[in-house]
Amino acid sequence: MADGLELTGVSVAYAGRRVVDDVSLQVRPGTIVGLVGESGSGKTTLARAVVGTVGLAGGTVHLDGTPLARRRSRTERRAVQLVQQDPYASLNPLLTVGRVLDELLRVHRLAERRIASDTAGAPDAGAWRRARCAELMGLVGLEADTLGRYPRQLSGGQRQRVAIARALAVEPRILVADEPTSALDVTVQRTVLDVLVGLSARVGLGVLLISHDLSVIHAACDDVAVLREGRIVEHAPAARFFTHPSDPYSRRLLQAVPRLPERAP
């Protein structure tokens, strides 16, 4: 089996009702796969299946060729990270951004691991963590002084980038982003998408980008999968999908998107 995330025939049921049904898809390192579907189609449930917070009624999830069980080890949990729609709900209001990141690095003993594997003169763990926090801010396009701020002092777009930095802190292989821009103003959507695109290219992260918004998927993704009532009805390279969708439902979705009239060049 190849590198990255591989779902094979994944199904999830709530109280006997299948809301994700026989889904297969792959997310290779350094690529962004878009999962689009209307509300209730099963996108969030699939995200939860990928990160292991809901059990499978069928199918398998592999990471780099190794099957992931429902009960995952700490290392396995680190490897697949989730970013949700509302970063406010998931950030502790009482801690500064720097404190949250530092705590994560400490809990996972990331500094110690790094320093142990580092043959060149090792700095102390505290200094390593401080440098890493600044580096994480850089990766998501935030100023280093953001580390001193509390969530309420940040804009929606900044908070979402902090949530991405937090997911990145534990050095995941795969990032699942569930509607990461849906709560944001259109003018800041793009900055968050640019961060995801930059990360997949620069650190080889594989991203599963979930959205109901086709323009968001188009702005960021290499491949597109369309989910309808729990099933994938089309899975195609973005370059083909947006001009030549093969499934009638995909086509209907694309036709419904409001588009601007011609702009002067």
Binding site: D185, T187, S215, V216, H218, A219, T243, H244, L260
Partner: peptide, 13 residues
């Protein structure tokens, strides 16, 4: 700025 924020989609064949 508002116009630039509208993420474009290619025309559907």
């Amino acid at each position: 700025r508002l116009l630039d924020a509208v993420l474009p989609l290619p025309a559907l064949a």
